[in-house]
């Protein structure tokens, strides 16, 4: 029996015209999408164009396209090639890496300790870890200015050992920056890791302890594989933002300790060199995408969310 092919479809239990469905869907998604595209996606793409523009005399943008900024990125400036920029890029990566490693080293004992507490206490510990996570980074960072200030115990101790002159503070300097970074990012590492540690199979762990002689082997063969997902998330949410961090280095690091984030911020404020800032931002984007690609492949994670 011939039957007219109807123009309707069934969708989630309703029978309706596909066009009507599409219109509804568009009505819901278009406003947010337009917002995002206008204020985020397009500007991000424009960064590429901006990076190739030039800075005018008074800090405005001249849309004359040149590769100058990219050359400056890799070191070629007015005075010929210098390694300064490389140092900045390298320092950003190095600092992020060290911070991540220290955070991992601290997060494992921390999460193990918490997971072995009785349930009541566990919640308490988790709240303690979550609170700094939600505290403003500016507040948390400047607080170190107090702790590391001159004539306080930590600074006094360092002076006693001759590490710093008498009456000086422990900042600005590498030590202060690392302290700031680790204390900022430890919750970022610990919380995802905790989610994995919570799901650990303790019986497997016991078996591994019997099997392997050294603690290190127990860690690499039993704990590490099982906690990989949480560890991967923790590394990504620590390493990537750490690379781009500028608050901590700005407050605790001083002029000698610039990271790429500080450089970028400079271009958009004092130096008023937007094109160069765009080029730096692109470089940071590339670094971000590469690190994420590496970590995702290493951990076999396909979906970050």
């Amino acid at each position: 029996m011939a039957s007219k092919k109807s123009d309707r479809i069934s969708w989630r239990g309703d029978v309706t015209k596909p066009l009507r469905l599409r219109l509804r869907g568009l009505g819901l998604t278009l406003p947010p999408l337009v917002w995002l595209t206008l204020l985020m996606t397009i500007p991000c793409l424009t960064l590429v164009a901006l990076a190739m523009a030039t800075r005018g005399q008074y800090g405005d943008v001249i849309w004359q396209f040149t590769g100058n900024n990219f050359r400056r990125l890799i070191g070629y400036s007015f005075f010929g090639w210098s390694a300064d920029n490389f140092y900045v890029l390298f320092r950003s990566l190095w600092m992020a890496a060290i911070t991540t490693i220290i955070c991992v080293a601290l997060a494992y004992p921390l999460t193990f300790h918490v997971v072995t507490r009785p349930p009541r206490t566990r919640v308490f510990w988790l709240i303690l870890i979550i609170i700094p996570f939600w505290t403003n980074v500016v507040v948390r960072t400047y607080a170190w200015l107090l702790v590391l200030g001159p004539n306080l115990p930590p600074a006094r101790l360092a002076a006693f050992f001759g590490l710093i002159p008498e009456g000086a503070a422990l900042y600005p300097g590498q030590f202060a920056v690392y302290l700031g970074m680790v204390s900022t990012f430890l919750p970022f590492m610990a919380l995802p890791l905790y989610a994995s540690v919570e799901r650990l199979n303790w019986d497997l762990l016991e078996a591994a302890r019997d099997l392997y002689a050294s603690r290190f082997q127990v860690f690499t063969k039993a704990i590490l594989p099982q906690t990989k997902p949480g560890l991967a998330v923790g590394i990504i949410v620590t390493f990537v933002p750490a690379m781009a961090m500028f608050v901590v280095t700005d407050i605790l690091g001083g002029a000698k300790f610039m990271l790429i984030g500080n450089l970028i911020q400079q271009q958009f404020t004092q130096a008023r060199n937007w094109p160069y800032g765009a080029a730096l931002s692109l470089a940071l984007m590339v670094m971000t995408l590469i690190s994420m690609a590496i970590f995702r492949r290493r951990s076999g994670l396909r979906n970050l969310s």
Binding site: L36, M40, P43, C44, T46, P241, F268, W274, L284, T288
Partner: peptide, 27 residues
């Protein structure tokens, strides 16, 4: 396309978002 657009702010460092916004506003 939707997924990528939505995930950009989550994945991309704050400072790049800030720079993009500055650019957007200046336009």
């Amino acid at each position: 396309f939707f997924d990528i657009s939505i995930n950009i702010p989550i994945v991309v460092p704050d400072i790049i978002m800030a720079v993009s916004l500055t650019l957007a506003f200046s336009f």
